[in-house]
Design a protein around this nucleic acid. Sequence first.
DNA 1: ACATCATATGACGCATTTATCATATATAGT
DNA 2: ACTATATATGATAAATGCGTCATATGATGT
Lengths: 111, 111
Amino acid sequence: MMYESFKLFARVLSNRTRFDIVMLLMEREMSVLELCDALGYEQSRVSHNLRCLLNCGFVEVERRGKRRIYRLNGEIKELISKIKNHIQLYESWLRECGILREEGIAKVMVE
Amino acid sequence: MMYESFKLFARVLSNRTRFDIVMLLMEREMSVLELCDALGYEQSRVSHNLRCLLNCGFVEVERRGKRRIYRLNGEIKELISKIKNHIQLYESWLRECGILREEGIAKVMVE
DNA sequence: ACATCATATGACGCATTTATCATATATAGT
DNA sequence: ACTATATATGATAAATGCGTCATATGATGT
């Protein structure tokens, strides 16, 4: 299909909370509280999105005492670091064209 | 930012209509009617989504008689063909893990 | 057994996305 | 000017996404 797999990948990462979580987990594994503190997001917000990341195979968990340590899946990590470069080029092109502005794009789809 | 640019790219392509249109335009330029016929989608559906693709810099238009011929932007075309390979690897991994099934994924986010 | 800390889950409301129907515009041919 | 063809646009409704509040679970220490 190709569409289904791209959609999964794209939808997971085109949410600010999940994107931020994944970027942090690119560096090192973290507990929920650590993520909350680092990002300044509410705990349930982080947990809900971690569940989504887990369902989609983006992360793995390990219980450690009272905590749950989340780590990025290896394949995903590799995939993201590859795509990252392309997106950076894309970003500079977007700016040249004036499509991407400082405030970002509020609504992507509305015409 | 990086998030904003990824989000734009991801949201544009994680819609079946737009994805299908873009895939066709990877091969050759086409008019609206040609796209409608090839995809079996309603005309206004295609037009709405072409407008979105245009706003986001994915496509360019040229008037030719009564028709409007749409073509994929060069940078985008290159970007997509690069990312395509990564996504194909990702797809086979998704299948191995059992995350991606035949029916696809209905709701990505719901937990 | 109880209190506390860490995390998960359910429900709800609001915002966004998207297809569809109806209608408008614009070009070409007669 | 009129008609037909090609395309664009506006409004609306249904579905989905997402954060928040409240509450539940589960482990640790006393």
